Every structure is written in C-alpha cells, then in structure tokens.
Simulated scan of single mutants.
Amino acid sequence: MSKKHPVIAITGSSGAGTTTVKKSFEHIFFRLGLKPLMIEGNSFYRYNSIEMQQRIARAQKAGKNFSHFSIEANLLEDLARTFKVYGETGSAKHRHYVRSDEDAKKLGYPVGTFTPWQKAPRGTDLLFYEGLHGAVRTETVNVAQYTDLLVGVVPIVNLEWIQKIHRDSALYGHKPEDITDIILRRMEDYVRVITPQFTHTDINFQRVPLVDTSNPFMARDIPTADESVVIIRFKDPLRFDIDFEYLRAMLHKSFMSRHNSIVIPGGKMGLAMEVIFRPIIERMIEDRKKA
C-alpha cells in the first residue's frame, strides 16, 4: 500500500460487469482532473491465444481443466510486482493484450497477441487495474497486499452467466453453446481462484435481479438496472469513513440489510459509485500531496 502512489483494483469474473465499473471510475478521474495509469488484467495472461488453445487442448486430453481463471495461466507474480513497484516509484512496466480487430488496428499487432512490455510514463496520479485477479492471495503470491482500494464486482452467478453469454455473442460472435462450454470448463477455477478474492475486497457490488433468471442459458434478455437491486458490502466501513445515513439520504429507496451492507435500486448504481468513491479518491490524492 502506498500513500504517495495509490493503487486501485477492480476485480471480477468474465461477464461480471467490471468494464462498466471501470467507466464510472474514469468519469470520476476526469472530473477530478486525474491522470491514471490504466492496467488491464488480460495483459498479464501468460499465453497468447494460440498457445492458450494448445494448453487447453492438452489439459482436456489429460482429463483436466485449464482456463484464463487459472493461477498457472497468468503472470500473477508480475502483477503483484507491478503494483508494488508502482506504489514505491509511481511507474511500472506494462503492455496490452490485443483482443479485437479494433485493437489490432490501433496497436499494430495481431489479435490474440501482446504488445511489447514498456515502461509507463511518470507523472500519473494513481494506478487503476481492472481484471480477473486483482485480489488474489495464494501461498506463493499476494496481489491484494499492494492495493489501496480493492473493489469486487459480483452479480449473482445466474446473472453473471446471462451477461457473459449476451456479451460474448454480441462482441465476439460466439455461439451460446460454445460460451456455455467455456463457463463449465472454468467452473473449478471460478470456485478455487475467483470466488475467494471477494473475501479480501474492501467494497463489493453484487447485483441481484428481481426477475426470473432460473435458466440463464435460455434467457433472451439481460435484466435491466430497474429490474435489479445492488447490495454494497463494506469490509471495514470505518477505514473509508463510510456515512450510511448520508448514503441512505442520497440514494432514494435504499436500506441497510446488515451493519456493513446497504441495498440500493439497480438504477442508482452509478450514483452510488460517485457518492462512495469520489470522497475516497479525493482523500487519496490529498494524502498523496502530503506525502
């Protein structure tokens, strides 16, 4: 953790909605005039897309599962080192994973490959990470220890699957049955790697639909924000000076479900992030100036 060079990490599964949360943070950074170093979790994949498919095929032939959720499929020691070095120096090495044709045109490298590692420019105000493994702790690596704010994005699992199926179908042209196979293949790592992270996060956002999602593999639509509620859980409300009475006043129709959890209408999620995170980030920047 670092007062001088803060590190913020958003962690969640594929289809959880971390990209939407990332956009909310980007709006806050813009309004506060901050320059973040943006780090994407897929830039720490260990293998390019061809190598990954080979590894998956080899694992399946041996009766095992392998996925991007797996510890072994990612450079998590490098991710932890990136957080640590940035916290100490305000700079770090980074690269990009080329995920789409649009990325390929912009970055000049084929889809499914990586750009070369390069040193990030100095002068950024904080590091912002969005990906699968921002709060990972194992016997050999502890990514979470180098963060100043850890946020988990955790819709209930049926909703997460619906979102993933619709997203991957729309963006990448995948067939729903192929996406279902991916979900099943990743399940062991989801339980072993992804889920435990949300014990270590400082704040979790869990969206819960108020419509029937009992068969996510047949759902035609993603439940809308107005058809959902969001449970916001604070691991230690005192650490960030969370004023629940103020939150309840600002977020109409919200209520406390536990001493550290507030439930809000789904349509208020963006406002909730503004109300919760802006003061935290402002405090980080003030501490940074003092440091």
Rank of each mutant, 00 (worst) to 15 (best):
M1E: 09
M1Y: 01
S2I: 08
K4R: 15
K4M: 11
V7P: 07
V7Y: 07
I8S: 05
T11L: 04
G12W: 06
S13F: 08
S14R: 10
G15C: 06
G17S: 03
G17D: 04
K23N: 11
I28S: 08
I28D: 12
I28Q: 13
F29Y: 10
R31Y: 02
G33R: 07
L34K: 08
P36H: 09
I39W: 07
F44M: 01
R46E: 13
Y47E: 12
I50F: 02
I50R: 06
E51M: 12
Q53V: 03
Q54D: 13
A57V: 04
R58Y: 10
A59E: 14
Q60L: 15
Q60R: 15
A62H: 06
K64L: 12
N65Q: 13
H68S: 12
H68W: 15
N74S: 08
L76Q: 06
L79M: 04
T82L: 04
F83G: 01
K84N: 11
K84E: 14
E88P: 00
T89S: 15
T89Y: 14
G90V: 09
S91V: 12
A92L: 03
H96F: 08
V98A: 05
V98P: 09
D101L: 13
K106D: 04
L107A: 07
G108S: 13
G108T: 10
T115N: 02
T115Y: 05
W117V: 02
K119D: 11
P121M: 02
P121K: 07
P121D: 11
D125P: 09
H133R: 08
H133T: 04
G134S: 04
G134Y: 07
G134W: 04
A135T: 03
N142L: 05
Y146S: 01
T147W: 07
T147G: 06
D148N: 15
D148E: 04
D148H: 03
L150I: 06
V151G: 02
V151F: 06
G152S: 03
V154W: 09
I156C: 03
V157E: 07
K164P: 02
K164Q: 09
D168K: 07
S169K: 15
S169Y: 09
G173L: 00
P176T: 10
T180W: 06
T180K: 15
R185P: 00
E188H: 13
D189T: 11
V191E: 12
I194A: 02
T195P: 01
F198C: 03
F205R: 11
R207M: 13
V208K: 00
P209I: 12
V211W: 05
N215C: 02
N215H: 11
N215W: 06
M218Q: 14
R220Q: 06
T224C: 00
D226F: 11
E227F: 01
E227G: 04
R233H: 07
K235L: 10
D236Y: 13
P237G: 00
L238A: 10
R239F: 03
F240I: 05
E245W: 00
L247G: 08
A249Q: 12
L251D: 10
S254Q: 10
S257G: 01
H259R: 08
N260G: 05
S261W: 00
I262P: 07
V263Q: 03
I264T: 02
G266K: 00
G266M: 01
K268Q: 14
K268R: 14
M269W: 01
M269E: 15
M269A: 05
G270M: 10
E274P: 09
R278V: 09
R278L: 05
R278E: 15
E282L: 08
R283I: 06
I285Q: 15
R288F: 03
K289N: 14
K290Y: 10
